[in-house]
Amino acid sequence: MGVEHLDRAMLFFWKYGYEGAGTAGLTNAMGISTTSMYAAFGNKEKLFRKVLERYTEGPSPYLARALEEPTALGVATAILAGTIRTTTRPAHPHGCLGVQGALTTSDSGQEVRDLLVTWRNNGYSSVRDRFQRTVDEGDLPPRTDPALLARHLTTFAYGLAVQAASGVDRDELQDLADATLRSWPLS
C-alpha cells in the first residue's frame, strides 16, 4: 500500500473518528478491497496506528518544529499557529484527528482510545520538558511551573481544535490564541 492509500484512510478517520469509520467506508475511501486492507495492515486498529503516525509526520508536524523555537513564547506561538493551521485547512476535515479520533469508544475501541491518550500525553511531556529548559535557561521566571504551563497550553490547543471542528473560523481562533499569548509569563 502506498502513502496515498494511507492518506485517504487518514482523511476518513479524521472525518469520522475511529468508531465511525467502518471497514466498507475505509476501503472505499482508500480505493482498495477489504482483503487488501487486511493483508497490508492486519486490522482496522493497526491501520489507525499507521494513520496516526502519518498524521503526526504529515498534516501535524508542527509540534517538533515548535519545540525548536529559541524561547518559550516562540514555542507557544508556533504550537498555537500550527494547531490553527492544521485544524482549519480547507481540503481537510476540521479539528484534530488526535483529539477527536476516539474520545468515546466502545469496549472494542479502548486500545485506540488509550493510544490517543498516550499520543496527547507525549505531546504534553515534550512541551513540559521544553518549558523546563526555558526556565533553566532563564527565559521564563524561576517561579514558573513548566508542567502547569505545558498543560495549560496543550489543553488550550486541543480546545482550539474542538472549536475548529465546531466551525469556528481561523480568524476567530487566531484572536483567541493572541489573547492567550498576551498573558504569557515573561522573565
Rank of each mutant, 00 (worst) to 15 (best):
T77A: 15
T77W: 14
T77S: 15
A78F: 14
I79S: 03
I79R: 08
I79G: 06
A81E: 14
G82D: 04
G82C: 05
T83C: 09
T83D: 08
T83W: 08
T83K: 09
T83P: 07
I84Y: 07
I84D: 04
R85E: 14
R85I: 09
R85Q: 10
T86K: 00
T86Y: 00
T87V: 13
T87S: 13
T88V: 05
R89C: 11
R89T: 10
R89P: 02
A91P: 07
A91H: 13
H92T: 13
H92A: 15
H92E: 15
H92L: 15
P93R: 00
P93H: 05
G95Y: 00
G95E: 07
G95W: 08
C96N: 09
C96G: 05
L97S: 01
L97F: 04
G98D: 02
G98R: 06
V99D: 03
V99K: 06
Q100F: 04
G101Q: 09
G101R: 06
G101D: 02
L103E: 14
L103F: 13
T104N: 06
T105N: 11
T105D: 05
S106Q: 14
S106T: 07
D107E: 14
D107G: 15
S108C: 06
S108W: 10
G109D: 06
E111G: 10
V112A: 14
R113S: 08
R113G: 02
R113Y: 05
R113D: 00
R113E: 01
D114Q: 11
L115G: 06
L116Q: 00
L116F: 03
L116M: 05
V117R: 12
T118M: 12
R120F: 14
R120D: 03
N121Q: 10
N121K: 06
N122K: 14
S125A: 15
S126V: 02
S126Y: 13
S126G: 14
S126L: 15
R128D: 01
R128G: 02
R128Q: 12
R128W: 11
R128C: 13
R128P: 02
D129T: 00
D129R: 09
F131T: 01
F131M: 01
F131G: 01
Q132R: 14
Q132S: 13
R133D: 09
R133Y: 05
R133Q: 10
R133L: 09
V135W: 03
D136R: 10
E137D: 12
G138S: 00
G138D: 02
G138K: 12
D139F: 06
D139Y: 11
L140V: 06
L140C: 04
P141H: 07
P142S: 09
P142W: 05
R143Q: 13
D145Q: 05
P146G: 00
P146T: 00
P146N: 01
P146F: 11
A147R: 04
A147T: 03
L148V: 15
L148G: 15
A150G: 03
R151I: 15
H152Y: 12
L153K: 07
T154M: 11
T154W: 07
